[in-house]
Design a binder for these strands. Structure first.
Lengths: 127, 127
DNA sequence: TATATACTTCAATCATTATTGAAGTATTAT
DNA sequence: ATAATACTTCAATAATGATTGAAGTATATA
């Protein structure tokens, strides 16, 4: 699918981010990271899922640029995750731009018998 | 997964909506509906996909409450789709609430050797 | 050096979802 | 009534993604 979109939002990137977040456990992990939870063990404990699965989901979130990683400087075995604020801001902008209700255009259908004109919800005067 | 979330956003509903929209063709269909395109044939023409597939995706969008349907009053064979503004507003609210950068809490890790304290990105003073 | 810890990666399986083609429905035109 | 139109539903397949268990990596402790 080539970019035949006259719209500023990068649809490919938006779809990708939505897909990554549209998974219950991943969204829960993201939520916990927002709440300030940081390491695999704590996340797994909190959500009652195996560490390797947490690891997998964090990898997906990292690959999407949504999450950062850091190793502890005293004991590098411990790994801390956090929200990537830059990507979060980009995502918020892309989302609100794309799903802005003001974008909805009250265009008339170009096909059909045109009997529709006065009945489409968009054209109707809203109370 | 029970609702052990102290957060106002309905995570189940948000995940569901994200999942429905996290599909390239569905997001494109949604985009076209925002642009004022209305019927199956026009959508299929525009995106170069078979009408039954358009139909399928529109069914998914309808089941999620994101899209409305109407039949033409002169020739009921023609079907017109449009954005459900109510659901769109709910979605916008849920999304912006959940992904609000101000939600990020600079909590310290409760596990690990605590050598991390001064190095986590959240704690660091941002320039 | 041997063992433990904390996590990651890999390969395989299971589940879900998208896609396709064919049949079906409802409506209108002839 | 018959045929055509516009779209929908269904059943089957293909593709994708989540989950699991085992092996692997890196680091730290005894």
């Amino acid at each position: 699918m080539t970019s035949n979109f006259p719209y500023p939002t990068n649809l490919q990137s938006l779809t990708m981010h939505l897909k990554v977040l549209a998974e219950p456990k991943r969204l829960q992990i993201f939520h916990l990271l927002m709440e300030g939870v940081h390491c695999n063990c704590e996340l797994g404990e909190s959500l009652q899922i195996a560490p390797n699965l947490i690891s997998h989901h964090l990898r997906v979130l990292r690959d999407a640029g949504l999450v950062n990683v850091e190793n502890d400087i005293i004991d590098a075995r411990w790994v801390y995750y956090s929200i990537n604020k830059g990507t979060l801001n980009e995502l918020n902008k892309a989302f609100t731009d794309f799903f802005d209700p003001n974008r909805i255009k009250p265009r008339l259908p170009t096909c059909g018998p045109q009997g529709n004109i006065i009945h489409l919800e968009e054209i109707a005067v809203k109370t």
